Simulated scan of single mutants.
Amino acid sequence: MTVAQKDKAVAFRALHEQPRAFVIANAWDAGSAQLLAGLGFPAIATSSAASAATLGRRDGKITRDEAMAHARALAAAVDIPVSADLENGFGPAPEYVAETIRLAAGTGLAGGSIEDHSGDPTRPIYDFDQAVERVTAAVEAARSLSFPFTLTARCENFLHGHPDLDDTIKRLQAFENAGADVLFAPGLPNLNAVRMVCSSLSKPVNFMVGIPGHSFSVPELQDAGVRRISLATSLHRAAMSGLYHAALEIKEKGTFEFLNGLVSPKVLGQYLRG
């Protein structure tokens, strides 16, 4: 661990302790991370789906080694904290999850998340006791480090066919009691559900923007009790949507009107280090 990594970790923890909500912007490569940092976002997050897409794969189809290489590249690219989407820890056993946290800490990350989605379509959410054991192992690994690695524990019920708010709150409370620093339930359907989750917990809550109709403004989320707002794949999808529409215009119309809406290379280049 370097002094710079420790400073980033301390700064990341402090962001969660301030009274207002902050946006953590999800990048997908070093260039996008530098652009977002240059625009003033205080922290960067990886996105498992976006990082998989850079390799031409779907979400959940990258290895732990590939995820670590991706995290290392983003952490080295910027001077602000980076937290990683570590999916389900890349294995079911608590010991494996703990090892994932230790490996993640070695990449220069300031934090990371572990979810209770199993990846098994026949049993997509880990049983309650197993989910808590996995978070407990992750917490113990994080606490063994020489710097404050911010651990986020995620309940994936609403993304994987089990939209049970009571069970979601029960799991998040258990994750909080196990020592998780931040709690996160992606896919909450409305602001009332967000308020219920936030009021049921004492640790900071992350809300994921990215689902049309289920995404809310920063003031609304802050008023509901949210402390951190992540963007999931939304920025990557925005970039890829621009590519899609530009390429479609060229292919179907033979025109290049998309050029009129582009940011100039000079403007983009000012955010890059090289």
Rank of each mutant, 00 (worst) to 15 (best):
A45G: 15
G60F: 03
A9M: 10
K8F: 12
A52M: 03
A4T: 11
Q5T: 10
R58H: 13
E17M: 08
R20P: 00
E17L: 14
S51N: 13
N26H: 11
G60L: 07
A4L: 12
A25C: 08
A33F: 11
I24C: 15
A49H: 09
A11Y: 13
A14P: 02
K8Y: 09
L36D: 06
A45D: 13
A14V: 00
S32Y: 09
A30L: 08
V23Q: 06
T54I: 03
R20W: 14
L36N: 11
S32T: 15
I44Q: 04
L35K: 09
R57C: 00
K6Q: 15
D7Y: 05
F12E: 02
P19R: 09
S51K: 06
I24K: 07
D7V: 04
S47F: 03
A33V: 10
G56L: 08
A49W: 14
W28G: 07
D7E: 15
A33E: 08
F41S: 04
G60E: 03
F12D: 03
K61V: 00
P19M: 07
Q34V: 10
T2F: 05
R20M: 10
V3S: 14
K61E: 15
T46K: 04
H16Q: 05
F22W: 14
G31F: 12
V23L: 10
